[in-house]
């Protein structure tokens, strides 16, 4: 493994750790509302417009499955092209 791959794996671990820590903080603090929802509520409260669901959103409990499938497909794609994108050419 060259330094770039090692660094990428370290970055992966770092980002995953940050996600886990953020999830833990979110869990301990309860459901934290997103600023998008806060501002939309503020905007709609005075104007009487309402958000509408035009496209069917994936249910929240299905999101981890969706992200897992996307992650597997994305990982296969990046893995397939990894040498083309980041390879030093030594192994060719």
């Amino acid at each position: 493994m060259d330094r770039f791959v090692v660094y990428s794996i370290a970055l992966l671990v770092l980002i995953s750790s940050a996600i886990i820590v953020a999830s833990y903080v979110g869990h301990k603090k309860g459901e934290l509302e997103g600023t998008d929802d806060i501002v939309e509520d503020l905007a709609t409260s005075a104007t009487h417009v309402q958000a509408k669901e035009i496209v069917p959103a994936i249910p929240e409990d299905m999101e981890p499955i969706g992200f897992t499938i996307a992650g597997i497909l994305g990982g296969l794609l990046v893995g397939y092209f990894w040498e083309d994108m980041f390879g030093t050419g030594e192994r060719k």
């Binding site: 953020a22 903080v25 979110g26 603090k29 934290l32 509302e33 997103g34 600023t35 806060i38």
Partner: peptide
């Protein structure tokens, strides 16, 4: 979404 505990939102 990243929680920001200081403001109580994410």
């Amino acid at each position: 979404h990243i929680p920001v505990p200081v403001t109580g939102s994410c």
